[in-house]
Amino acid sequence: MTETLAADPTTVTAPKGRKPRRGRRRLRLWVPSGILAGMLAAAYLAPLPYDPAEPLPDTLAAPDGEHWMGTDKFGIDVFSRLVASAGVDIPLALAGMLISLVVGVLLGLAALHRGPWGERVVRALDVFQAFPLLVLAIALVALMGNNIENVVVAIAIINVPRFVRLVRSEGLTIRESRYVEAAHAIGATGPRVMFRHVLPNMTGIILAQASLAVAHSIVVIASLSFLGIGINAADASWGAMIQTGAQNMTTGQWWVSVFPGLAIFLTVLCFNAISDELQDSFGRARQR
């Protein structure tokens, strides 16, 4: 009984009775997901034309049939390294997001408790979020130690507030709905109401935020490795690749930086598109 009620109000899905539109919607969700899955699959499974860490004799070769995206100043094949980097950058961002998702959702649900503390937590997070997050990430990694695990921790920390705020603000409306009242009335415990009745009604919007968080994390990870922080310079990473080619941009060898830059752009674009789509179908009327 409560289950069917729970699926009903507040979160309204796409308007009913518009089949073709829904089909297009689904396409807009699956195309970016497919691109991302393809990138990951290529990073782990596809045979690379060259070793992504092995310098070749011809340095700074322009893109041609031999080297599809040219080589960098060390003579490393840009295409091979770019594909290999997808297997580093995307999983790191996903891992960081997952940690912040779990922590953020739990904290957000906790902040829903009536009383002054919920409001205070949100105020504190406001201050925290106003701080330049990239610099905070740099500081966290530099202070905790320069390695990949700490990059994930830093990504997780800077992304927690967005989930706390989202869960709290969505939960404030859901908390007032009839089915939550009903669940309380038949004697369901607090945690049960939260996890069985409140949380399931915001999964869509949380997923949208999660996708946005991954997009943001990809950029932060790239910025960190661009500055030479966190990821070991020898490991493949898009940000480090752009750094390798940064000097060449002023002398005309654009391919070293531009291809990894486009890879970041495409990845971020896909995660943003997924987020927009999820928000359109699950969210109430909000920003486009």
Partner: peptide, 14 residues
């Protein structure tokens, strides 16, 4: 929104 700012800077320099 999807272009990292540091990459945009390098593109503009080029």
């Amino acid at each position: 929104q999807s272009i990292p700012d540091f990459f945009l800077a390098l593109l503009l320099i080029y």
